[in-house]
Write a protein that binds this DNA or RNA. Structure first.
Lengths: 349, 349
DNA sequence: GTTTCGAGTCGAATCGATTCGATACTATCT
DNA sequence: AGATAGTATCGAATCGATTCGACTCGAAAC
C-alpha cells in the first residue's frame, strides 16, 4: 500500500482511508489512488495486517464433532449451519470449520489455538464440557452454542428437549398407544448402543439426547423400552429398531418415538423389512422436522425449526461481535411444534 | 508476550522461541517463561500477529455455491469435503467456508477480499469461469478445484466425466436396453429444467453435467431423451423422471441413467409412484457412489470415490501450501468404477 | 478583517508477534 | 593456552496495515 500511496502522491494513511472507505477523502484523490493501485496490480489491503490492527479476523470458528461426513449426514445439522450462515453473511463474517475428532478431542484445541477468530460457535449439542471453553474465554473470544457446553460463558439457543419429546409421546398416547418404544441418539461421543436403563442417563454427556429420553420416560412410563443408537443416522435407527421390533408380537411396541428424523427413517425401514406396515402396524414419530423427500409418507415429527435455530444462533453471535458481553445476553428458547404426518395412526388392536 | 518475557526475565524473542518451539531454548528458561505466562493468564501468541509476520493464516477458503443447506444436501459434496478435511487436518489448516449465492455471485468476492487465507478450493464443480480466480491470483493465493473454474492457475482433480457416464450406459446396453433416458444435473446456476437438446449443451457452464451428458449421448445415441433437473437433488430427480416416465408405454424408456445418485433416487421414487417396478420394469443407474442407506436396494452407479477425490484435492492443496507453483503441479485424474447394484436388469420385453 | 469551521491530508505510533544476525558463554579438542 | 564448535540468548528490524491528533487551507460568518 505504501507503494500505491507513493505513486499516487499521497500519504499511506490517506490511501488506507480510500480502501477502507472511512474518513473523508476528495474524490479526485481517491481516483488517483485507485488508478495507482490498478497500475501496480494492488488488490486491496492485506487481510492479515488489517486483522492485526483492527483486532478483527472476520471469521468465527464453528465446531464440528467427529468427521464432517458423519456430522453433515444429518440434514438437521446442515440446516442449523445454513441458518447460522445466513445471519453471519450479513455481518459479514466467514465460518471456519474446526474439527474435533471423537478419539482425540485435544486436536480441536491445537487447531483453535492458531486460528484467528472473533467468536466461536458450538452449533451442535456436544458434550456438556469442553476444554475449549477455558481457552477461548482466556483469549477473550465470545462463545455461543445450542445447549452445550454448559457454561455461563457460552450463550445458548435452546429448545425444551424433554417437553418436546413428551409432546410426541402424548400424541401417540392420545391415539391409543400404550406400548411405546424409544430410540435415542448416542449419549456420548462413542457408544456401543443397545438397551438403555433410566439410570444410564445420569452418565450421559450429550444433554439433548439425555433430556429427550427423560421427557420420553416421564410421559411413556419409566418401564417403556429405550434403545440407544450407535450413530444418529439411518443405519443407527435401523439397528436400534431391530432390537425393539424383532421380538414376539405381544412384546412388540405399537409405536416408536425416535429422537431424530433420521433415526425414524431407519425405524420405518426396519419395519418394512419385518413386514410391518407404517402406520397400520407401527406408528413412528421423529424429531427435528427436516425435509426427507425420499420418505414415502411425511413423517410425524417435532419441528424444532432448524434454520430458525441457526439464525437465532447467528443473531446471538452478531451481538457478541458487537461487543455485548456474554453475561448480558439472555439465552434464547425456540418453540417446537408437533407436526402430524402420515406415520402415526391408532394401533391396530 | 512482552509482559510475559519481562516477567520471566528474558527477551521477547526468546519467549517467542519458547511458544513456537523452533530454536534452542534451555529447559529452565522455557519453564520460567511458561510459568510467567500461566501467572499472567497468557494463552499463547496472538494468531493475528503471528499470521501477519509469518505470512500464513492457517486456513484455506472453500467455495460453497448457493446455500449450505442445498449444497450439503448431496452426500457426495460432503464426502469430498470430508476427504479434503482429512488431508488439511494433517497440514494443519482450517477450512473457511465462502458462500457464493446464485443470485449475487459478487458477494463471494467481497467475502474473499477480507479473508486471510493461504489457498482456495473450488471443491464442487461450479461455473467454468469465476471472477475469484483473477483476484486470488493477484493476491498470490494458490487455487485448486475439481473441474472448474477452467484456468491453468487452478490445479485440478478430475474424473473422466464423459467416459464414466458412458460406462453406465454401456452396462445398460449390454443388458439389452435400447430406449435409455438421461436425467442431468443443472447445467448452470439457475435453470428451468426440462427436455434438453444436444445443442443446448454448448451453452452449459457446469462442465461436469455437460460432459456426462455428452458421454451419454455418445453411447446411447444422439436421439435419446435427455431431461435437465432443476436441482441436483431427490426432488429434482422426481420432477425430471416424470417427464420421461409419465408417457405412453411404447414411448417410455426401459432404463434411465441419472447423473447423480440423488437424482437416481428421485427417479426410483417416481417409478414407484407410477407403478413401475425397479429393476423389472425400469432399470436405473446413478452416479457418484455415495451411501444412501434409505434406498431399498443398492443402486447401480458409477463410484467416483468422493472421499478419495477430496483427499487428492487436499494433497494438492498441501503441495501448493508447501510453495510448489501451480504450473508445476499436474492435474490428478481419479479412476471411476461401475458398481452394479440391484437397480438394473434386462428389460422385460 | 478576523474568527470559525470543516473538509482533506499527513506523520507517527501502534497492533503483537517472528526472524536474522550478532554476541556471550561453555565445552571439547589439539 | 588457544582454537573451534556449539548452545543459549538478545536487539533490532520487519510483516502491512489502521488510527488519532495535528495541521493546512479555503470558505462562510460576524
Amino acid at each position: 500500500m505504501r507503494d500505491v500511496a507513493e505513486r499516487a502522491g499521497v500519504a499511506a494513511s490517506t490511501a488506507s482511508l480510500v480502501f477502507s472507505g472511512r474518513g473523508p477523502v476528495a474524490e479526485t484523490t481517491a481516483q488517483r489512488v485507485r488508478s495507482a493501485a490498478a497500475e501496480l496490480g494492488y488488490v486491496g489491503p492485506d487481510p492479515r495486517a488489517s486483522s492485526l490492527r483492527r483486532g478483527r479476523a472476520g471469521a468465527v470458528g464453528v465446531l464440528v464433532e467427529g468427521r464432517l461426513l458423519q456430522a453433515f449426514r444429518d440434514p438437521f445439522a446442515v440446516a442449523v449451519l445454513d441458518g447460522l450462515a445466513q445471519e453471519l453473511d450479513a455481518v459479514p463474517t466467514g465460518m471456519l470449520l474446526v474439527a474435533q475428532p471423537f478419539d482425540e478431542p485435544e486436536r480441536a484445541m491445537e487447531a483453535v489455538t492458531g486460528l484467528a477468530i472473533d467468536a466461536f460457535v458450538f452449533s451442535m449439542c456436544g458434550p456438556t464440557e469442553s476444554p475449549l471453553v477455558d481457552h477461548l474465554a482466556a483469549r477473550g473470544i465470545p462463545m455461543a452454542g445450542t445447549g452445550a457446553p454448559l457454561d455461563r460463558r457460552v450463550c445458548q439457543v435452546l429448545i425444551d428437549e424433554a417437553g418436546s419429546q413428551g409432546d410426541a409421546v402424548r400424541h401417540l398416547r392420545s391415539l391409543g398407544h400404550r406400548r411405546i418404544g424409544h430410540v435415542t441418539m448416542p449419549m456420548r461421543p462413542v457408544v456401543d448402543g443397545g438397551p438403555l436403563r433410566p439410570s444410564d442417563l445420569d452418565r450421559a454427556v450429550y444433554v439433548d439426547s439425555r433430556d429427550r429420553a427423560r421427557g420420553f420416560l416421564a410421559t411413556a412410563g419409566r418401564r417403556a423400552p429405550v434403545v440407544e443408537a450407535v450413530m444418529p443416522d439411518v443405519e443407527g435407527g435401523i439397528a436400534a429398531a431391530r432390537l425393539l421390533l424383532d421380538v414376539p408380537d405381544e412384546a412388540r411396541p405399537t409405536a416408536i418415538a425416535a429422537q431424530s428424523d433420521l433415526l425414524a427413517a431407519g425405524v420405518i425401514q426396519t419395519a418394512a423389512e419385518l413386514g410391518l406396515r407404517v402406520p397400520d402396524d407401527l406408528s413412528v414419530t421423529g424429531f427435528d422436522g427436516v425435509s426427507l423427500p425420499w420418505l414415502a409418507a411425511p413423517l410425524t415429527t417435532i419441528d424444532q425449526h432448524a434454520e430458525e435455530k441457526g439464525r437465532a444462533l447467528g443473531r446471538l453471535v452478531a451481538r457478541l461481535l458487537d461487543g455485548v458481553p456474554a453475561d448480558q445476553i439472555d439465552d434464547v428458547t425456540i418453540a417446537t411444534d408437533l407436526r402430524i404426518g402420515g406415520t402415526t395412526a391408532p394401533p391396530a388392536h
